[in-house]
Nucleic acid binder design. Structure first.
Lengths: 335, 335
DNA sequence: GATTGTAGGTTAAGCGCTTAATTTAACTAG
DNA sequence: CTAGTTAAATTAAGCGCTTAACCTACAATC
C-alpha cells in the first residue's frame, strides 16, 4: 500500500499537520523536526497524493490540451512543446483530439472540468461562443494556433495567418502564377479562413481574382479528402497553375493528386503548404511551405496559461507571431 | 462556483447520499425521487468531481501513456489510437515523452503515481527492472511496442520485431544485396535489438554476415544523428548496397545522407525503414518499410489495461502481432 | 395483532490532505 | 515572580464524495 501522511506522522511521532508543513515548506517547524520528518518520508517512500491535496483547494497541476488531431504532425509538434514546457513548470498534460468536431470538443471540455484540470490550452476551433464564455468563467483558457470565435478578451498565441496567406500569394505572384487555387480545411477553422483572406487580398491588390470555385474545403481525413479535392481542382477547365494548401497534409494530398494525373510538380503545377512540419522536408519534391514557430508557440501558450492560473497579471493578451515562407522545391516560375 | 453534491441535495430536499446514489445508479431510490434529483442536477449544471470521487476509492479514469517522443509520427499515431479507445471506454490520457531517458521516465512514473492514474501504458524502454517490479505492485501496467526488460509476466502488445528484421533481410537477399548495414536506435531500445537480431540471423542463415562495424546506433535526435551515422556507413570502404533502418525517421536520415553523397536510391543504395508511418508514404522515393499495425496495437493495449484494472482476468499475457513488409520505391535489385 | 420483509431513505464515518485557530512550552522583560 | 512574547507543534474542521450500517413506514403473512 502507498504510504499516507498518517503513516509518516505516526512513524515520526508527530501530528499530520507537522508533516503537511514540511511538505509545503510553510508554517513553523524546527529544522530538527523537519529533518526527522524528511527522513521518515524518505524511508517510507512517501509521495503526497495530488488528488487529496487538490480536494483541499490546491491545484491538480494538470492542464488539458485540445487539438484537432494529435497524430497530425503539426499538432504533435505543438503537443511536444507544450508537454516539455509544462513538465518544466511542473504540470502534466491531458491530451484531447477533437477531430474539429464540436460535439467531441464539448464532451472533452466538460470532462476536463470534472477532472479539475487547472487550465486549458485550446488549439482547436471553438465555434460555440456561449460555451466558451461559460468555460472561461470557470477556468483559465489560452488559445493556441487558433483564434477564438468571439470578441472576448482571451489569451491567444497565434501566427499571423493573414500574413501567412499573403506570403503564399506573393510568392506565387513573383513566380508569375495568377491562375491559382486554394485547398483549405472546412470554413469553421479560423486559421484556414484567415489564410485564405490574406491570400486573396494580396491577389486582388495585384489585380487578380480568386473565384469561389477555385477554393475547396475538406472536412475530415485531410490526406484522403485533400487528394480528392485537389483532383477536382486540377481537372477544372483552365487548370490552375498553382495551389495554396492551408496545411502540409493537404499539400501532400495535392502532391498525390498531381502525380495521379501525371502532372509534374513544380513544372506543371506549383504547390505551397502551411506549417512546415517534418512532412514538408521529406516529400518529393520537398514542399515550399509557410512555417509556424511551433515550438515557441507551445512554450508561450504554456507560460501564458501558467502565468494566468498563478494569478499574475497576463503579460500580453494576444501574441501574434510572424510566419515565414520556406522555399523548397514544390514551387517554380510558371512556364 | 461549481455546484457540489451538497447544493444538489439541498435544492432537492434530500440527503447527499440520495444524490450519490442516483449518480452511481446504485442503492435504492424511487423512480420519482430519482427524476427530481436528476432535474436539479440538470438545473444546477452539476457534474460530480472526479477528484473527490477518486479520494473515496473510486478510479480517476485517467491513464498515463509513456512514449519516447510524442512528436515522432509512430508514437503520435499510437497515441491517437490509445486516446480514441481510452475515450471510448471512458478514460483520459496523460502523455509523457521520455526521450528514452531513464531519468525522465522515472520522474514521470513517480508523478503518475502521485496523480493516482488508474493504469499505465508504457511504450518506452524500462531498463530499470527494480523500478518496474515495484511499479507493477502499485499499479496495472501494459507494455506497448516495447518489451519489458524483465522476465516478469507482463501484459504486452507488441509486433514481432524479430520477424520484422527478418522480413527486411529476406527482402534484401531476394534483391541480391548481401553487403548490407543497419542503422538502429541505441542498444537499450529493445525493439531495435530484436529487429537487428532477426535481420542478422536471416542473413547468417543465407550464408552472409553482419559485422559490428556495419551497425550504427543513434542516441537522441534520430533525424539528425541518423543522417550523420548513415553518412559514416555510406562512406565506409566497400560501401553497403543496402541499409536497414530500425525506424522511418532513421530511414529519412539515410535518404538525406544518400542524397548528400550524390547516391541515388534505390539505384545506388536500397533502404528499408520500419513503422510505416505517414512519413514512409511521402518521401522521395517512397519508403519500403516494415509496417506495424499501430491502430490495433493502441487499441489492444488500452483494452488489455482496462480489463486488468477492472479486475477481470487478463485475456492474454502477450499479444504478438505480425509485422508486414510494405514494398515501395526505396528498394531495388542490386545493380 | 404480532412478526417479518422490504422499499426508500438517512446517518455518519472516512478517503488523504490543508490550514486557521489553539495550545504548550520556553524565554524575556520589568 | 509574573505578565507578555514568541516559537513550535497540535487540534479540528472541512474539501466533495462513497458506502456500510441504520432507521422508518408500510405491506404481507399466519
Amino acid at each position: 500500500m502507498k504510504a499516507t501522511i498518517y503513516d509518516v506522522a505516526r512513524e515520526a511521532g508527530v501530528s499530520i499537520a507537522a508533516v503537511s508543513q514540511v511538505i509545503n515548506g510553510k508554517g513553523k517547524i524546527s529544522e530538527e523536526r523537519r529533518q526527522e520528518i524528511l527522513q521518515v518520508m524518505e524511508r517510507l517512500n512517501y509521495r503526497p497524493s495530488v488528488i487529496a491535496a487538490a480536494l483541499t483547494g490546491k491545484k491538480t497541476y494538470t492542464i488539458g490540451l485540445l487539438v484537432p488531431d494529435i497524430s497530425n504532425p503539426f499538432f504533435s509538434e505543438i503537443a511536444r512543446a507544450v508537454e516539455d514546457q509544462g513538465d518544466h513548470r511542473g504540470y502534466s498534460i491531458i491530451m484531447c483530439s477533437t477531430d474539429n468536431k464540436m460535439e467531441r470538443a464539448e464532451r472533452y471540455l466538460s470532462l476536463m472540468l470534472q477532472k479539475s484540470v487547472d487550465g486549458l490550452i485550446i488549439g482547436t476551433g471553438m465555434e460555440n461562443k456561449e460555451a466558451l464564455i461559460k468555460l472561461m468563467k470557470s477556468i483559465p483558457v489560452v488559445m493556441v494556433a487558433r483564434e477564438a470565435e468571439t470578441n472576448l478578451a482571451m489569451q491567444t498565441v497565434i501566427v499571423d495567418d493573414f500574413v501567412g496567406g499573403s506570403l503564399a500569394a506573393r510568392h506565387f505572384l513573383e513566380l508569375k502564377h495568377s491562375r491559382v487555387a486554394v485547398l483549405a480545411e472546412k470554413a469553421t477553422v479560423s486559421s484556414s479562413r484567415e489564410r485564405i483572406r490574406g491570400f486573396r487580398e494580396t491577389l486582388v491588390q495585384a489585380g487578380h481574382a480568386l473565384a469561389e470555385s477555385r477554393i475547396k474545403a475538406c472536412e475530415d481525413d485531410l490526406l484522403k479528402e485533400g487528394k480528392e479535392k485537389a483532383l477536382e481542382l486540377l481537372q477544372q477547365p483552365d487548370r490552375p497553375s498553382a495551389i495554396f494548401c492551408c496545411n502540409d497534409l493537404l499539400a501532400i494530398g495535392t502532391l498525390r493528386a498531381a502525380k495521379e494525373l501525371g502532372l509534374r510538380v513544380p513544372h506543371d503545377v506549383s504547390i505551397i503548404g502551411f506549417d512546415n512540419t517534418i512532412l514538408a522536408t521529406v516529400t518529393d519534391p520537398t514542399l515550399t511551405t509557410v512555417a509556424q514557430p511551433t515550438e515557441l508557440m507551445g512554450k508561450m501558450a504554456v507560460d501564458s496559461l501558467i502565468q494566468k492560473l498563478e494569478g499574475q497579471p497576463p503579460a500580453e493578451e494576444r501574441v501574434v507571431l510572424r510566419p515565414e515562407l520556406i522555399i523548397r522545391q514544390s514551387t517554380a516560375v510558371k512556364e
